[in-house]
Design a protein around this nucleic acid. Structure first.
Length: 591
RNA sequence: GGUCUCAUAGCUCAACUGGAUAGAGCACUGGUUUUCUAAACCAGGGGUUACAGGUUCGAUCCCUGUUGGGACUACCA
């Protein structure tokens, strides 16, 4: 049962009987009434006044009277063209008691029968993860969970960028150092160790460039002729020629990075069903190039390079194969799209990738459409904004990054400070306290990153630490812990339903709970976890107001009120816990 | 140069996709606990939604232009 569809039905009937207007009931838009007006839902009549041939006020009035007469609502008022509706209390309570025991309340069938591959994370293996990667990982994970709750069949995929000039740079610097450092010998986490050499490479590369520029070369020349880069390119050629020693070093160093990533992923709480390695996929797509040439979708220049003309799509000409016959990035992506489709027959293939690649994905989809691939329309780029620092964009090579592992450590330490201050850890072991610090610290971080619209870029200021009060992850966790505590103290309760005459705070809470399924669908449709984050904050806020105003399990409270309020608390707690789960955040029972 | 994108309170973000008087948090000022977890609750100040036009019953949202940020525009990945 759904409160909104009931009113939609009523308005639908009213429009028909009073004005002979016949529109789809589900297209009737209802909004929550603004705070300063009396009512629960508001219907805007302006769009219908032309057809009704009456003034907005008169139209709203007649619809309202119809709804009242046929007992869809308990009262209404009209302000200009806005029809404000007050619900029957009994229908609110009916809704509450049925939803609370409805096993499918936290699910929708929006994606039933559809398969979706969510590709996210997709790191390079030459450096550790930073804050930007955290945003990517959390978004990808959360979107996957939201889609699952909408009954999609989800495959989480990670395409690891394990080859190319970047990893050769780290390998070269490591080799040249002659130190034979390993994660074991240094105690440095593998991805950080490799990243250290990547930075070392860049430092010497830069100094070589400035030396050459000092000798009178142009910047561009110097960048191409610096000895380091020439050696790195030579190493890449050896790698591509399957040189044994190069491959061995490559495997060793990538192995260190994977060990490091594994720990970071675990701590972030993200996981994958399928890994793809670029070293296996970088030759894919060449077959497709031939197919495109045969179909005359692509064309070949005199030098042998292969191109596609996408000017009809508002894009440019794009290279698909170099004149030496090697493939480029887009060629690989064409190949992996096909590979994934062969493997999973997906309906939708999501790519959680930063917005700097907007153009790339337009091109990819444009190519696949021209090739008439059946999966072309299922390609969706979930584009998210960069995480910026006050100083500008993060750059790994220049060391202006917020390291993922460091940041998680800081969040843990910050949480510990606050938890010890609050002094609520009585009866907990040292180990339990540490777990709590981790869970709360990670909640602050995750919520901070997920509450903003993915499409917007996000500013992170390392100088002021992430909050634990107000609109934050810990606030929401706290609300749940509070609920948990009051339920424990309440003793036996039942659904006797003797309680009537809801106070505003209770009514607001039921209405907030009622909107959960529509939020879940919206978050899934828009691939947007911030919908869930903002919703659960609003829900927690309403609960805290209710908690402050209404005694729940205090001494002397009448049984009927207690039963209802405990039930309301339970349902709210379950909803909060589920929302947090969708965001990858744990909900501790006590904090 | 071309294409895309963003601009909302001192700061970080909302605004149900065109609806009423633009809302939260942080910060600031003041209040709430002999009673269920004060990481809470309540109140107050703070806005010409970058600027100028247009579209209509109605614009933060759509269109045009201006200004200012960012990204992309490699035979790199």
């Amino acid at each position: 049962m759904n409160l909104i569809s009931n009113i939609q039905t009523g308005i639908h009937q009213a429009l028909q009987s009073a004005f002979g207007i016949d529109i789809d009931a589900s297209s009737i838009k209802l909004e929550r009434t603004l705070q300063d007006f009396k009512g629960d839902f508001t219907w805007v009549v302006f769009p219908y006044v032309k057809q009704a041939r009456k003034s907005p006020e008169q139209t709203a009035l007649e619809i309202g009277e119809y709804l009242l007469l046929h007992q869809f609502i308990s009262e209404f008022n009209v302000v200009k063209g806005f029809l404000n509706i007050v619900l029957n209390e009994s229908s609110l309570l009916d809704y509450f008691y049925s939803a609370r025991h409805d096993a499918s309340h936290f699910k929708t069938d929006f994606g039933k029968g559809k398969k979706v591959v969510v590709e996210y994370s997709s790191p390079n293996t030459n450096k550790p993860l930073h804050l930007g990667h955290i945003r990517n990982n959390l978004l990808g994970y959360s979107i996957s969970e939201i889609l699952k709750a909408n009954d999609y069949e989800v495959v989480k995929a990670n395409l690891i960028n394990d080859r190319g000039i970047h990893i050769c740079k780290s390998m070269l610097a490591w080799q040249q150092s002659g130190l034979n450092e390993t994660p074991q010998s240094t105690g440095i986490k593998g991805d950080h160790l490799v990243g250290k050499y990547y930075v070392a490479f860049d430092r010497s590369y830069k100094s070589e460039i400035s030396l050459l520029v000092g000798e009178g070369r142009s910047q561009e020349e110097a960048e191409k002729q610096a000895p380091s880069i020439l050696l790195a390119q030579a190493m890449l050629r050896k790698w591509e020629a399957n040189d044994v020693d190069t491959l061995k070093l490559w495997e060793t160093m990538n192995g260190w990075v994977y060990e490091g990533f594994k720990l970071s992923y675990q701590r972030l709480g993200v996981d994958f069903d399928r890994y793809y390695y670029e070293s296996n996929t970088y030759l894919l797509g060449k077959k497709t190039v031939q197919e495109g040439l045969d179909k005359h979708v692509f064309y070949q220049k005199d030098d042998g390079s292969v191109w596609i003309d996408l000017t009809s799509e508002g894009l440019d000409h794009k290279l698909l194969l170099r004149s030496d016959g090697t493939s480029v990035y887009i060629t690989q992506d064409i190949g992996t799209a096909q590979l994934k489709f062969d493997e999973f027959q997906y309906d939708i293939s999501l790519y959680v990738v930063g917005n700097e690649q907007d153009y790339h994905f337009k091109v990819l989809q444009g190519i696949l459409k021209k090739m008439e691939k059946p999966y072309a329309h299922g390609i969706v780029h979930v584009s998210y904004g960069m995480v910026d620092l006050p100083s500008g964009k993060m750059k790994s090579r220049e060391g202006t990054v917020v390291d993922a592992d460091d940041l998680m450590d800081e969040m843990h330490a910050e949480a510990r400070k606050i938890i010890l201050e609050r002094g609520k850890t009585e009866g907990m072991t040292q180990e339990q306290v540490e777990i709590l610090c981790e869970v709360v610290g990670m909640a602050a971080l995750k919520y901070y990153l997920l509450r903003v619209d993915p499409q917007k870029r996000l500013l992170f200021n390392p100088a002021d630490s992430i909050d634990f009060e107000g609109n934050t992850g810990p606030y929401i966790q706290y609300t749940n812990a509070r609920i948990n505590s009051v339920i424990l103290k309440s003793g036996e309760t039942d659904d006797s339903r003797g309680y009537t005459r809801l106070v505003p705070a209770e009514k607001e809470l039921i209405l907030a709970l009622h909107s959960y399924p529509s939020i879940l669908i919206k978050a899934g449709e828009m691939h947007n976890p911030s919908e869930i984050a903002n919703y659960v904050y609003d829900l927690a806020k309403r609960y805290n107001r209710f908690y402050y105003e209404c005694p729940i399990a205090k001494d002397g409270i009448v049984k009927e009120a207690k039963c209802f309020r405990v039930a309301l608390s339970k349902f709210t707690g379950e909803t909060i816990t589920e929302c947090l789960r969708l965001l990858g955040i744990e909900a501790p029972g006590k904090m």
